[in-house]
């Protein structure tokens, strides 16, 4: 492996993607909670998308920060 350029951790890439996904899913679910579609999914009143989006966002922020480039992760 090239020692002159340190490889960015895969967990950083995962964190970035999860942040994007968390924002998109949270925002979309929030919008559709306020503007319900004509054919809602089963158990739509649980608003699972809002909670799932928030969870993904939090996980994504954690991994992005924890494994950011330049930080030694052991």
């Amino acid at each position: 492996m090239h020692s002159d350029t340190r490889l960015i951790s895969i967990w950083f890439f995962i964190g970035i993607l999860l942040v994007c996904y968390g924002v998109l899913i949270f925002a979309a679910s929030w919008y559709y909670a306020a503007n319900p579609p004509a054919n809602p999914v089963v158990l739509a009143d649980l608003h699972i998308g809002i909670w799932w989006g928030l969870m993904i966002l939090v996980i994504g922020i954690f991994y992005t920060w924890k494994f950011r480039p330049g930080k030694h992760n052991g």
Binding site: L24, A28, Y32, P37, V41, W52
Partner: peptide, 12 residues
């Protein structure tokens, strides 16, 4: 998937 996942979650 179609039964439970609305926009956003469906994409995921």
């Amino acid at each position: 998937l179609a039964r439970y996942c609305g926009p956003g979650l469906l994409g995921l």
